[in-house]
Design a protein around this nucleic acid. Sequence first.
DNA 1: TCTGGGGTCCTAGGACCC
DNA 2: TCTGGGGTCCTAGGACCC
Length: 451
Amino acid sequence: MRREASVLHLDLDAFFAAVEQRDKPSLRGRPVVVGGVGGRGVVATASYEARAYGARSAMSTAEARRRCPSGTAFLGGRFGAYRATSDVVMELLREVSPLVEPVSIDEAYVDLAAAEGPDLSVDGVTELARGLKERIAAATGGVTGSVGIGSSKLMAKLGSELDKPDGLVVVPPGTELELLHPLPVTRLGGVGPATAERLHAVGVRTVGDLAARSLPDLVALAGRAHGTGLYQLARAEDDRAVVPDREIKSVSAEETFERDLTDRAVLGREIDAMAARVGGRLRAGAWSGRTVTLKLRRYDFTTLTRSQTLPQPTDDDRLIAGIARRLLDEAGTAGGLRLLGVGVSGLSLYAQGDLFSLGPDADEPAGADDVPAAAPEPEPDLPAERRWWPGQDVRHDELGAGWVWGRGIGRVTVRFEGPLTPPGPVRTFAADDPALHPADPPDWRAATMEP
DNA sequence: TCTGGGGTCCTAGGACCC
DNA sequence: TCTGGGGTCCTAGGACCC
């Protein structure tokens, strides 16, 4: 814990849904749910309008559909659009201080003490946060964020949760325990369902209750590392640093199937596709890894992993896939599999094949080793209506830019509007209409910013 | 038609080594 | 012919986070 309120936490409000409402004017002020739209999908983000009906993150989409009124938009995610907006926000944070730690696409810590000549008084950081929030909303086309500032990551994060959405809470140094002790223990990071259950069983419900327990008690209850962590957090003792550029430790891809799968040939092709995604991301970051892990979830939701460690790191799609296929053969597919995943860990920089390369300028003749390990994924041969998914950006040769509102058998319904237009008209097309194409996300920035 | 996808960290047991 | 002990690597599983 520091003596000044110099850690800032930013949490963008209902982020995915907010980006959708920005880009789709007809959805502003209405319930929007973003997440998996298939039979086994779950909610990633619900807009505040949808939360009023009980939709929540991590709820099955089927449950959210039962709770929300007709007219609620259920959209698959447009991660490119979210990433572009997130990048703009993270850049604004770096203008405040060079020490920015992104926690996820919609969350970050900022170490204000690393800024040049910061006024770290309560009034000073309040002013700073006000300006930051204004710049974020202006640069993102109206996406808002909640900010907390305090003497540690713990207090900053609790602060950002206190006044959502569009909140701003500074926890004055010296008042930490007043805020902390009445809160339920579940508000502490690291206290999930399992730990909460064990704490409740011994009568610990609030952080104050937790602070009354001895260190050996908590270690017995939650293990060495976790118990020690809880003991300290309950006292507002938190000296975790704000760390930019965390090293990545593993890369993985997984997929839950619409129906449980048993067929080895089909599962083998799924493994190949996931291994290609993992290998591609490894090569994009110039990483390679020694441990290949296969994850599988059976029909009854039991989940297990099988792994093998290689003598040398690899980024080769076919090698990764070959190991994963063998691990699957050993694990078996009895009863059907609901999910498969392929991952690589034990990462190091530079693939084996790069050891003798002198870098991008090296004058090296193309050899067999330079041939990509696997062909790019072929265009999936989907029925026409399956090419479209709700929320997707599209363009029509005559009618211009729009997005997919819904799809039916052989039909797709598109609303023609964009972030800078009024709510637009709806048209329905044949799913294989040649005038209709998938498109990039629209630009939300004002036209005056264009050259 | 309950229960995604991408991660991190911790624990524990067995192998192996000195 | 009681039993060592510590460190590291590998594997598997679990809890948790967004």
